[in-house]
Amino acid sequence: MSWWSKLTEALSGLQAGRVTLDYPARPRPLPKRFRGRPIFKAEQCIGCAGCANNCPAREILVFDVCQEVRILKYLGRRCTYCGRCADLCPEKAITMSQTADLATDRIADIQQHLELFMSTCQRCGRCFTEPSPIEQLKLKGYRFDDLGNERWIYRSQAVLGRNDAVDDIPLELD
């Protein structure tokens, strides 16, 4: 009998209760294995730039202001929260946070900017021969990224101009 099955269905629907989360009003615990954004601890970081050279999104920028001060800038905007930086950091200076509530109206809000002191040899320096300028270019970790425009500095000139790329596929506009 169809009306009976409809009735039982309605009754079971009434018994089901409510599943909707009351989310922004009440916080919801995230699963333990959830990876939020990486949090840098400046006091533990030695400035080895391992995270910057292995970030798949290439979004940790390094800039050596002078021999003693290195800037490490985490942009946050294209981070995929993969946790690779936290895995390989030799000093465990990066922890993946446990929060997902990162929404913002300014993308600069999720940036982290570290100013690191790079200790240099205080003595004769004979143990460390300084690389020549050509060798410095080849060294990984020796970088002068463009902090203002938030991108890696490449030595190749083979990049498309932005406007060429926008207009090269003409679309009919009404």
């Binding site: 989310y23 922004p24 009003a25 919801r28 995230l30 840098f40 400046a42 929060t99 997902a100 509530d101 990162l102 929404a103 913002t104 109206d105 600069a108 809000d109 999720i110 940036q111 982290q112 900017h113 570290l114 100013e115 690191l116 002191f117």
Partner: peptide
Amino acid sequence: EAILYGVALALGLVDKQVAATRIG
């Protein structure tokens, strides 16, 4: 939850939780 949070932020139900950090 993050998308819901963004929507709630735009509707003014919650406050922004992140701020740029500059540490050394």
